[in-house]
Amino acid sequence: MSELLLTTFAAVLIAAGCLFFLAGTIGLLRLPDFYCRLHATTKCDAVGAVLILLGVALIAGADTQTVRIVALIALIAISSPTAGHALARAGWHAGHRPWTREENDEPE
């Protein structure tokens, strides 16, 4: 019984992770400017990946594999925000200015 519960829970986690990825990708395609897209993708990808890894860890159970998965989660938790930060900084430096509704709606 508990195994079924565990598997179900893992499946839910993985499905939620996939949902985050999907949302991030939709954001990448639909959002208006560099910073919004960056916001959508980095955050959604980090959470999505972490959720999927948690789900996998549940299925793996108490195993050496779980240690690696925890290490992976730590790596993602460190690297993904850093990448987002570096990208945003580079974008700002390259001269991208954030999109605002007033500026962009008026000419049309």
Binding site: L75, I78, S79, T82, H85, A86, R89, A90, H93, A94
Partner: peptide, 18 residues
């Protein structure tokens, strides 16, 4: 040559950590 962008302290620390 792009203008010299100073290294972000965040990126610097994280890279040194990883």
């Amino acid at each position: 040559q792009p203008d010299e962008l100073p290294v972000s302290p965040v990126v610097d620390r994280i890279i040194r950590l990883l």
